[in-house]
Design a protein around this nucleic acid. Structure first.
Length: 449
RNA sequence: GUGGGCGUAGCUCAGCUGGUAGAGCAUCGCGUUGUGGUCGCGAGGGUCGCGGGUUCGAGCCCCGUCGCUCACCCCA
């Protein structure tokens, strides 16, 4: 973060920073739409019933009520702010199923709220950018594969440096632990998920304490979690860990699915994804593929993009809508990149041309000049008063406005490039700045400069 | 929710064993009487987070409180 917030966990950006955020959002939107995802927006508020029992701890949910909570409103459904976009989307799908065409692919970029203790990269109000594909009754496994490809391309389009999508499959992990004789696969997953953070020794110790794993089981569980391959060779490694005949149907299905995902990612977005069998994800509605993403150089941030397959999050009577989704933590991402000065904007305002005033009475004709520029898509701003030219130039300079416009008493126009100091005659009807100066650009110091 | 660290100018910080608030950067003005950036000179800007206590006297000591921050939990 550039500044410490006056209220922790609620990030507010300066104009130049917001420009960077808008660039990120625009880029994501463009890539999502290019891959056929339609946009929706769901309301910020859901009923408690919808939100709770869907995998989130209730202490993190912000309740919403009227200050004057009288008898009437007490009888109303209790409301709360959504903590992610997946649960509201599931509700949206079941409510609007009759109007949607399945498989339905949508993207959704909105604020969400979590009442957590804020930390670097952790906010109470933040923006998520989600893509999901949902089927009616069934959803081809290929959706899991395509979704990861789209997200990898979106992250690549942001041009924020090297990242790595890490993929696992809960069927694989759970099948494996069951085959080992561990009776609480979910608990094992939770501990194994911390491998990156606490290291192999402590994972093994916790497995023994919490899951009653004996030394052999703990060793095998740990060995599985340490498998990390860029190709499909993980499957062989998994089989080598078990005695012949110990495999089960769930494990085999998980291996098949993982192999398909990794093979496709290796082919379509080479070098940007790996199989990582330690990935588990906290939310318990995931049933198959799970994804996390690390941004190299920002490993301590945690995952910047996560998600997975959910087979029964959305149900409506006898119908179920299996889906698969991925979510980018936009706020987390840009706060880290801004703080590290890895992304900055070329100026703090959209203005490309600052039109000066020679006399206070020139304001109207100066607006005519500005309008001629604006009509051709050039952002222009007119001075309020005819201060000394030095001050007017300084006004533009402080905002990073690249061009200053002058009109003399005879009506001759000149435009000055504030960076070089070059000043040349110009015609407001035809003069155009170079494309790179037309709108603010996002710069990557250290790479662009 | 649990545990550590920290709150002084717009920003980064200094302030001794308690004696009545300072620097750099930024801002504004002038030098430079209508073309900025450099340089020089000058100016403005503070309820020292808030409340209480001890004291002749508190930025400093004590208590409380609010906020920020880091770690745990969990997660984007």
């Amino acid at each position: 973060m550039a500044r410490s917030a006056s209220l922790s966990g609620y990030l507010e950006l300066l104009p130049a920073e917001r420009l960077v955020e808008l660039h990120v959002l625009d880029t994501l939107r463009e890539v999502f739409e290019r891959h056929g995802f339609a946009s929706i927006e769901s309301r910020a508020v859901e009923t408690m019933d919808t939100l709770l029992g869907k995998g989130e701890v209730d202490k993190e949910v912000y309740a919403v009520s009227r200050i004057h909570d009288d008898a009437d409103s007490a009888a109303e459904a209790k409301l709360a702010l959504h903590f992610d976009l997946t649960v509201p989307f599931a509700r949206y799908v079941t409510e609007n199923a009759g109007h949607l065409a399945f498989p339905f692919r949508r993207y959704q970029i909105q604020k969400v709220w979590r009442g957590e203790r804020p930390q670097a990269g952790r906010f109470r109000e933040f923006t998520q950018a989600d893509i999901d594909i949902v089927g009616d009754g069934t959803l081809p496994f290929r959706a899991d594969t395509e979704l990861a490809v789209v997200m990898a391309r979106a992250l690549a389009a942001l041009d924020i440096g090297q990242f790595q999508l890490r993929v696992n499959n809960r069927k694989l992990s759970q099948g494996f632990y069951t085959a080992l004789g561990l009776n609480d696969p979910a608990a094992v997953l939770r501990i194994v998920d911390k491998l990156d953070k606490i290291g192999p020794a402590r994972v093994q110790a916790e497995l023994a304490e919490t899951c009653g794993a004996d030394e052999h089981q703990a060793q095998k569980a740990l060995a599985l979690a340490q498998i990390r391959t860029a190709d499909v060779s993980f499957a062989e490694q998994v089989r080598d860990l078990l005695p012949p005949g110990a495999a089960n149907e769930l494990l085999e299905e998980g291996l098949r699915e993982m192999t398909e995902v990794i093979a496709t990612l290796q082919e379509r977005v080479p070098g940007q994804a790996v199989a990582d069998l330690s990935i588990a994800r906290g939310l318990d509605y995931y049933t198959g593929t799970v994804y996390e993403t690390v941004l190299f150089g920002h490993e301590n941030l945690g995952s910047i993009c996560s998600g997975g397959r959910y087979d029964s999050l959305a149900t409506h009577g006898k119908r179920t809508f299996p889906g698969v989704g991925l979510s980018i933590g936009v706020t987390r991402l840009i706060s880290a990149l801004l703080a590290a000065d890895e992304l900055t904007a070329s100026r703090s305002v959209p203005t490309a041309v600052y039109v000066t005033l020679r006399e206070d009475t020139d304001w109207s004709t100066a607006q005519d000049v500005a309008d001629q520029l604006r009509a051709r898509g050039i952002s222009a701003e007119v001075a309020f008063s005819a201060e000394k030219f030095g001050k007017q130039i300084k006004y533009a300079d402080r905002r990073g406005i690249p061009y200053v416009w002058f009109t003399d008493a005879e009506g001759h126009h000149e435009v000055k490039d504030i960076r070089s100091g070059d000043q040349v005659p110009a015609d407001p009807a035809v003069w155009t700045p170079p494309a790179e100066d037309l709108t603010p650009r996002v710069l990557r110091p250290g790479r662009d400069l």
